[in-house]
């Protein structure tokens, strides 16, 4: 049949003898082979698998039944109180304190709610009152300042110097005559020269800075308090020189009088 068949040709391989088979109960073997139980016994793994699947399915069905049977509408909380012992007593104490704290906070909360309602009510009342007052309240003229106690310079400025007491604060108002002072200044040469003397140096410095020579004639109006109200240059050889003299003379200070006065003063350069 094949070349390799000859390789062991000179050896009787059947020298390796097989013992005669043990006697078997052939009818029993046939019965086992034909019985369905034997066929089932051949598949233990399949049986276990089927049993496992059945058990798993049963467990799933039982779980579903349990879940579906549970009441879902109402839930009841059951708080189990400690039964006893040192630790249980502490837990009980803590729970009692927590309940007290809860009650206290609830009371505070109700108070806060009441106060809030009160504030709202008051604010509503205030709003209504304001509306009512706005409807019937005419414009009240500002209170005039007539008494000397409230008559200060700021009030007079705000009143536009209308009050009688504000005359003394007006810059262009006639000075209030002091009864101790003479009614008018006796504008003699001496008093005029004394007043001019205070600004004599500045007046003369105007001639130093200017090369123009001549006479600058200024008219000076003096207030009752001795300060210069106005200076008018009536004649000047040079406007700049006149301006310089005017600026110097306006700072002169003269003796106080009841009515003030005016005079003309020539400055020769």
């Amino acid at each position: 049949m094949n070349d390799d068949d000859d390789l062991l040709d000179d050896i009787d391989l059947h020298a390796w003898r097989v013992p005669p088979p043990a006697a078997i109960d052939r009818p029993l073997l046939v019965m086992r082979a034909l019985s369905p139980a034997a066929a089932a016994a051949k598949r233990p793994r399949l049986g276990w698998l089927l049993a496992g699947i059945v058990l798993v399915n049963a467990a799933i069905v039982a779980l579903l039944v349990i879940l579906l049977a549970r009441p879902t509408a109402t839930t009841t909380r059951i708080i189990e109180r400690p039964a006893g012992g040192a630790v249980d007593a502490k837990v009980h104490d803590v729970l009692a304190r927590l309940e007290q704290e809860q009650r206290r906070l609830e009371g505070k909360l109700s108070e806060i709610q009441e106060l809030r309602d009160l504030v709202l009510e008051l604010s509503e009342r205030v709003r209504k009152c304001e509306q009512r007052d706005a409807k019937r309240e005419p414009k009240v003229p500002r209170q005039r300042i007539d008494n000397d106690a409230t008559c200060d310079e700021v009030s007079c400025v705000l009143q536009n110097y209308n009050a009688s007491c504000c005359a003394k604060y007006r810059r262009d108002a006639p000075p209030v005559a002091s009864p101790s002072l003479p009614e008018s200044l006796d504008w003699n040469r001496g008093s005029i020269m004394n007043g001019i003397a205070s600004v004599k140096a500045k007046v003369m410095s105007c001639g130093v800075s200017s090369s123009v020579h001549g006479t600058v004639k200024v008219r000076v109006v003096v207030r009752p308090d001795g300060l210069v109200r106005d200076v008018t240059v009536e004649a000047t050889p040079d406007p700049a020189l006149g301006k310089c003299v005017e600026a110097a003379v306006v700072r002169a200070v003269f003796p106080q009088t009841q009515l003030g006065g005016s005079f003309t003063y020539p400055v020769v350069f």
Binding site: I11, D12, L13, A15, W16, R17, V18, P19, P20
Partner: peptide, 18 residues
Amino acid sequence: SYIDPQTAAAERELGAAI
């Protein structure tokens, strides 16, 4: 190898070797 009492010793030895 099955030892047949009737087989020769050499054959038995050969059978075991095979």
